[in-house]
């Protein structure tokens, strides 16, 4: 129930932003649209622990995770741009497996998405029972599981572990 109310508020907020500047017709229609959205996908929405129960974690999320992600994203762009412009195309691609210690759905989702946005790596698949992620790596530096884990996952795992678990 709680997550449905949260979902209603989120979708109502995005409706209000989409139909900016607000007037009463848009606001009334928005209530019906958001209620319909909650009715359709309310059961799919994340369940379990909510961030709202630990307000300090939200601040930690904003202060530590977001700047790291933006910085890595900018680095990733220059990395890919360099590889594309270079006349000999310096790539050494392949798919490696890495280990992760995170368990919850939200944390794993954030981890996989962060890996995709960081330099040269893209998550392909995940095996939850073994705690293994399969990563496509554009320039392989280590093929063994420990070396790859250290280079790819460790940066984000510590931060995300503190936030979501």
């Amino acid at each position: 129930m709680r997550s449905k109310v949260l979902l209603f508020l989120v979708s109502y907020l995005s409706w209000c932003l989409l139909t900016w500047v607000p007037d009463w017709q848009h606001l009334v229609v928005g209530i019906f649209v958001s209620a319909f959205v909650v009715f359709i996908i309310g059961d799919l929405f994340i369940s379990g622990k909510h961030l709202s129960r630990y307000p300090i974690r939200c601040w930690y999320f904003a202060a530590c995770y977001v700047p790291v992600l933006i910085w890595e994203c900018i680095k990733a762009n220059f990395d890919v741009a360099y590889r594309v412009i270079h006349p000999r195309l310096p790539i050494k691609p392949g798919i490696v497996r890495v280990k992760t210690t995170l368990k919850t759905d939200t944390a794993l989702t954030f981890l996989a998405n962060s890996i995709t946005l960081t330099p040269g790596t893209m998550s392909v698949d995940i095996d939850r029972e073994k705690g293994v992620l399969y990563i496509h790596w554009i320039n392989i530096q280590a093929t063994d599981i420990e070396g790859a884990t250290k280079t790819i996952v460790k940066r984000f795992e510590e931060i995300l572990g503190k936030i979501f678990e």
Binding site: C73, I74, A76, N77, D79, V80, A81, V84, L89, I91, P93, I95, T116, L117, P119, G120, M122, V124, H136, I138
Partner: peptide, 20 residues
């Protein structure tokens, strides 16, 4: 255009196009 296969092309598509 330049990169060789689906996976490498996806890398270019996700990264450059996200920030761009």
């Amino acid at each position: 255009i330049r990169l060789p296969d689906v996976y490498n092309r996806l890398q270019a598509a996700t990264k450059c196009v996200t920030l761009g």
